[in-house]
Design a protein around this nucleic acid. Structure first.
Lengths: 210, 210
DNA sequence: TGGAGGCTGTAACAATTGTTACATGCTTAT
DNA sequence: ATAAGCATGTAACAATTGTTACAGCCTCCA
């Protein structure tokens, strides 16, 4: 396990901390689509991503969804941190977007390391910073952009995260993640196709000019 | 100054830290409407709120605004923290909503205290947590609520923050903060008045049933 | 005291997004 | 091979939000 840890976190953490992580962390391989965290659950450990990607989703009381952002290699879930510390329930759902490798750290260690390792503190702060910025981006999207722009951004993000110009989803799934209806997505996708920005296939969308 | 610090932060910080804050912090009184931070500025100190309230606003490249949340007594601006650490420009604007008292802390101290005081660490984490939650709330509002619900929530929040059932603003200002147009706000306010939830006056809105 | 400018009300219309309904074609299981 | 179910395309319409235009008031200042 240690080599993969070093690959993703070697430049961030000192040897000693890496070894502690190696000792207390649990290595996990998660298949695409696996639900890591559900809304309302209590959380007792935090993930350090080694590879793959995780999508973080917000849901309101009526079951309406909204995709917030993706976590990738080198990321951790600040929302999880937050919940751990506050001993509160999760406000979000986390689902593997790709097959994903990660290390789970028990939360007690997190507290301990924050006092002990400067590099860990910086990592945690950096992580909070990133997440706040992603939340701002999410807010920008829904507040300032029209649905067609949001859709294009969504497709671009997918391409970036999956490293694949073929976005493998249905219109319905996109509708859920952007919190709109399937018909709207079909309509706008058709427009984007007419504009030459994408090409539609069954279960697949081919994205150009990312 | 020390009594006011103790009143707001005595239950959080140990004596020693409070005295450090007292030594290195700069006490400031800010009038309503004063702009504390502008988008794009670099930030070299973080505020600890003693009294009053600060509104935090997002703006896109075209100058469209959106109110994100309020900071109150006992809060600090995690966004500022974030920017300090990352040495990045501010992504938000901060404006005093009321006459406000606060203590400004130089950022070097912040880093130092994070290693030194457990209570400070907890405070910082707690603060990040709160801000993430407020961002989620903002996202919920714009993603899941209609404008009339958002407007009602907006008025409720104002009443809570100012402790005054008379909300002193113009329709245009509300429109800016909710990122819509004045006409829309006037229309919806009129509806709310018909429903008996508010009463309209010039430059003032009286809010019932908060 | 008269005029300028800000605040509010309202109508009429446009644009965007959401909803319902239905048709078509593909995939899969029996 | 056929039925069932999913994915997509599209039309027609509804609801919400945004825009333009203008009128009436109030306030404040010259």
């Amino acid at each position: 396990m240690i080599e993969e840890l070093i690959q993703s976190y070697g430049h961030l953490f000192e040897r000693e901390l890496l070894e502690e992580i190696n000792q207390v962390g649990t290595f996990k391989e998660i298949p695409e689509g696996y639900k890591l965290i559900e809304i309302g659950e209590y959380i007792r450990s935090m993930p350090l991503l080694i590879s793959g990607a995780i999508k973080v989703i917000r849901e309101d009381s009526e079951g309406d969804e909204l995709l917030l952002y993706f976590l990738e290699r080198g990321d951790t879930c600040a929302m999880t941190l937050s919940c751990c510390i506050g001993q509160t329930k999760s406000e979000i759902r986390a689902v593997a977007e790709l097959d994903t490798k990660l290390v789970m750290i028990p939360i007690q260690k997190m507290e301990e390391w924050t006092g002990k390792y400067r590099s860990w503190r910086n990592f945690v702060f950096e992580s909070y910073h990133s997440r706040l910025m992603e939340m701002l981006e999410a807010i920008d999207s829904i507040a300032f952009m029209n649905m067609d722009e949001r859709l294009l951004k969504y497709l671009g993000d997918k391409v970036k995260v999956t490293q694949d110009k073929m976005v493998h989803t249905t219109h319905q799934e996109i509708a859920y993640e952007l919190h709109t209806s399937r018909v709207v997505i079909s309509r706008l996708l058709k427009n984007l196709e007419k504009l030459g920005k994408i090409k539609l296939h069954r279960n697949n969308i081919e994205v150009f000019n990312l």
